[in-house]
């Protein structure tokens, strides 16, 4: 390890510690706001440290993308009505998941181009794309439901669960096709397979969330939030990057617990919410 890599690694550890302190302070109303600030400070350290390990000439491209995304984020967060907070969180969560899926796709291209892909990457690339893309489109649907633009109420159609299962099987097959170099579906190149996984996972994300009613959306958003955390952690394995593994896993784990706490506080058992689609399509069958 050269000096830059070592310093970046140490900065990542500081950032991880600040995230943990931040979340700890967020458990108490008195210290919550400072907790958020501390976590944000940790983020700044992690991002600044990353600048030292990447090619200098790409700074302009990164700067433009960060400026655009940051500006839009600040503007939307400042303008949003207090009552519309849940869907705004869903939107930010969705783009996080989308970013994870896109990163995995981009890295998969680089692995293919360099001709060397490891077993770890073979497993974690499709996994990251799957979770990230489900989280992205699931969050889009949650946003549209809460904003009452589309999919209001519980949207079901016949054989919904069968379609979901087939989609999932298709995703697994395409994932396997990606890392066997196109041995299963010969007309799809490995990169095309990963792009297909991205598309089908997005569709799965839509189908998983549309049957769930608007009242349960905050819990669904919390679950998708945990999912995006896991996608970030999985992308950490793809990129061989510790801060992504650490921060992503902490969010994945704490998000799962938080989802259970929320569903308990609202008196809506988690199993009931997730399987609402099954119950609804079953009732529909009886009615018809």
């Amino acid at each position: 390890m050269d000096l830059d890599t070592t310093l970046t690694f140490l900065a990542y550890l500081v950032a991880a510690a600040l995230f943990i302190v931040g979340i700890r302070r967020l458990r108490n109303p008195e210290t919550a706001r400072s907790g958020n600030t501390i976590a944000a400070f940790g983020m700044v350290i992690a991002l600044a440290a990353t600048l030292f390990v990447i090619e200098f000439q790409s700074l302009l491209l990164i700067g433009i993308a960060v400026a655009l995304g940051g500006f839009l984020g600040a503007l939307s967060a400042e303008r949003v009505q207090m009552t519309a907070m849940p869907q705004m969180v869903a939107a930010y969560n969705g783009v996080g998941g989308g970013a994870a899926a896109l990163i995995a796709l981009s890295e998969f291209y680089h692995f293919q181009a360099e001709g060397g892909s490891s077993l770890v990457a073979d497993i974690t690339v499709p996994l990251t794309v799957l979770i990230g893309s489900v989280s992205f489109m699931g969050s889009v649907v949650a946003f549209l439901k809460l904003q009452e633009v589309a999919f209001t109420g519980s949207v079901t159609f016949p054989l919904q669960q069968v379609v979901n299962a087939l989609l999932f099987l298709g995703i697994l097959t395409l994932g396997a096709n990606a890392f066997t170099g196109g041995a299963i579906v010969p007309f799809l190149s490995p990169v095309a397979s990963v792009v297909s996984v991205l598309a089908l996972s997005g569709l799965l994300g839509v189908l998983l969330v549309i049957p769930i009613g608007g009242a349960d959306m905050p819990i669904v958003i919390s679950l998708l939030n945990a999912g995006t955390g896991l996608a970030a952690a999985a992308s950490g394995f793809v990129l061989d990057n510790y801060i992504l593994i650490i921060a992503g896993t902490i969010v994945g784990a704490s998000g799962t617990i938080l989802t259970r706490l929320m569903s308990g506080a609202l008196g809506r058992p988690l199993g009931k919410i997730i399987f609402a689609g099954i119950a609804a399509s079953g009732a529909q069958k009886k009615g018809g």
Partner: peptide
């Protein structure tokens, strides 16, 4: 807490910068 942890998984930006 959900919103703050949501911001923390924005660490994915690190991955985006690298890629």
């Amino acid at each position: 807490l959900m919103s703050a942890t949501n911001a923390i998984h924005g660490i994915i930006l690190v991955g985006g910068m690298i890629t």
